[in-house]
Write a protein that binds this DNA or RNA. Structure first.
Lengths: 212, 212
DNA sequence: TATTTTCTAGTACAATTGTACTAGAAAATA
DNA sequence: TATTTTCTAGTACAATTGTACTAGAAAATA
């Protein structure tokens, strides 16, 4: 592995553990056993670390989204996608732990983020519409309620990691299940009976997959 | 107003605007037109600013909670209390903008926070139980769903301010309505018919109160 | 092999920041 | 009025941090 990649990997790890503000360039170098000069050769600015890591995350999310099967709408796909998304978010959790501060300090990242936000919101709207048409969701959901479901989803996706860091003490698998339920459960009262069965079955299965 | 209070007020304002990490002691002194030495006389540590501000917030929340009328359960009380809570949170929003970082850097605050968390969670459980008994909420809500409603409420309460800062552009009143709906709307599908009417009427009224 | 490019360590330094300390003004109290 | 307490400004300084720069090693290329 090249030094540049090692730096990125170590930075990500330390950022996730301590928050990006607390971690200094020197911490990263120390942890990695290289000199500050070496770091400086690969990254002139500390900022570029954050931006590169953000870009990596976005790339992973993009790959995930483009792989969603659209033809047949199933709750389990919804849950599966969210599960995968949560894994990516956990991998880059420093970004969510310092959400406001990062967006405030790195205008380039904020702009990218806001662009994605628009795209993803449209995407969510379309998805839910398809779900209603295909009978996964009840058809009598008011537009206002649908909007709220989407908005809440966004807030929860951006903040579950903080809650997990502060409150959750359990293994990674349990954490995943807990927050998946937390975020996706908002659909529960709107699911059609068959979809609700599928929903509950998904989590039963997930619970059994639990690694001892 | 005493210098000490002026410092607290200015600090709060700057923290809310720029995040507590960005704001230096010097910024506060400059904004206030006093010397660093003066600041240092009133507050030996920058930390104590944060802790005092946190305590003020908790005190205001405590007053609010202790004033909740318990005898007759009504949705509008639930909404009213949340509205008041949101005002307090907006007043001290720096705390929520830098939630993870503050809890991570100030163990004293984290401990206080976690203690409150337990208390408030029990409180929420009791409240919802009363609501179910008195027919505000449907009586067939599963325990798991009830837990989720409470957990989601907590996450949303702690993170709506960040979302507002990043995404919302409107006046304070509109902001309040938007995020009140966002957070409290999760009860909507569980409300009894009469309570749902009350719920919708509350927001209709709120919308009309709108200051031009 | 000779030359160029890539990489690493080490040093230096400016900028930032919190806070300790001193001197004396202003206010309160005896 | 004399004395004590509270408050303010100003200076000094240590600690932290990011990054520029130099010298030379290591690797790649001609």
């Amino acid at each position: 592995m090249k030094t540049k990649d090692k730096i990125l990997r170590t930075a990500l790890q330390l950022f996730n553990e301590q928050g990006f503000r607390t971690v200094t360039v020197e911490n990263i170098c120390e942890d990695l056993g290289i000199s500050k000069g070496n770091f400086n050769y690969h990254f002139r600015k500390k900022e570029s670390l954050i931006e590169l890591l953000y870009d990596s995350m976005v790339e992973e999310v993009n790959e995930l989204i483009s792989a969603i099967p659209f033809e047949d709408a199933k709750v389990s796909y919804f849950l599966q996608t969210h599960q995968a998304l949560f894994h990516i978010q956990a991998k880059y959790r420093f970004f969510f732990l310092n959400f406001f501060e990062i967006l405030n300090h790195y205008p380039a990242i904020k702009e990218k983020y806001l662009q994605r936000y628009e795209l993803e919101k449209n995407f969510a709207h379309q998805s839910l519409k398809v779900y209603m048409e295909k009978g996964v969701l009840r058809k009598d959901i008011r537009v206002e309620e649908l909007d709220r479901i989407i908005d809440v989803g966004y807030v929860l996706n951006n903040s579950w990691a903080v809650d997990a860091e502060i409150h959750f003490s359990g293994n990674e698998h349990q954490k995943m299940i807990h927050y998946l339920k937390l975020c996706c459960g908002r659909l529960e009262p709107y699911l059609s009976p068959s979809a609700k069965k599928e929903y509950l079955a998904y989590f039963d299965r997930l619970q059994k997959e639990m690694p001892v």
